[in-house]
Design a protein around this nucleic acid. Structure first.
Lengths: 128, 128
DNA sequence: CACGGCGTTTACGTAAAAGTCAATTCAGGC
DNA sequence: GCCTGAATTGACTTTTACGTAAACGCCGTG
């Protein structure tokens, strides 16, 4: 496990711009340490970037991603807050399950569309 | 099966604004018929709205949703176009499978986060 | 016939998520 | 000590997906 990654290393690995990484820092999603003015990204930052991009692919906004990331942190010590957090986590989980249903439905319809195409090819006597 | 739906009926059913429905029409995603200047939405339009919102929940842009919707239409008659369409469909399917992996990973991490919270509650001696 | 409610068009506004550009700064190599 | 390449900051711009406001048409009701 490397200790630090440069900003350009991460832009290449994840195919994002430096602007994007700085934007995520401005948004408080990552907090790379500094040597002078230069950002040094630790493995934990790298992992956060991974999670951020995963969230983006799922259509979550930056704010939603921020919320999700906070859920991964150390659980709070106070009972009320713990219970609240559990509630929030379950809301997100329900959100994701809805997305999963949407996803499966869309996949099924695409499967059907593909099959129509294949049938049509067969009708046209195409020997793949 | 109703023949027509008014714009406000659909706004209420799907909890979206009239502006949104008109926007989708401007974008060519739906084509309600007209009686005078008034839009009449058919069941097929309603179904399209359903698909559009599903796409949105999955994080697809309007352009991507347009592409997906076009895939559901009657397959073209020309062999080259058919093969191209099949390729495009498979790209979207791969896209969705990636989203599914992202989704499952996120769900797993949320499960873990929840479990940490529950453990913490037990430590604090909370009875459910 | 005045009204309230629904619907329409046109036009401008806006928030989110970066992209782009300019001006600087800094660290390392020769 | 200077140069080059990488990095930084800050400001402005862009795109997407609508929101919002103005101004008006149509129609059924009291």
């Amino acid at each position: 496990m490397r200790e630090y990654y440069s900003i350009t290393e991460l832009t290449r690995e994840f195919d994002i711009s430096t602007r994007t990484l700085r934007f995520y820092e401005d948004e408080g999603l990552i907090q790379p340490v500094r040597r002078g003015r230069t950002r040094l990204f630790r493995p934990s930052d790298r992992h956060l970037v991974r999670q951020i991009l995963r969230g983006k692919r799922l259509g979550f906004s930056i704010n939603e991603i921020r919320e999700i990331i906070q859920m991964y942190r150390e659980p709070p010590g106070e009972v009320g807050q713990l219970k609240l957090l559990i509630t929030r986590i379950n809301e997100k989980k329900e959100d994701l399950r809805q997305k999963r249903r949407d996803l499966e439905e869309t996949l099924a319809e695409l499967d059907q569309a593909e099959e129509s195409c294949v049938e049509r090819l067969v009708e046209l006597g195409v020997n793949t």
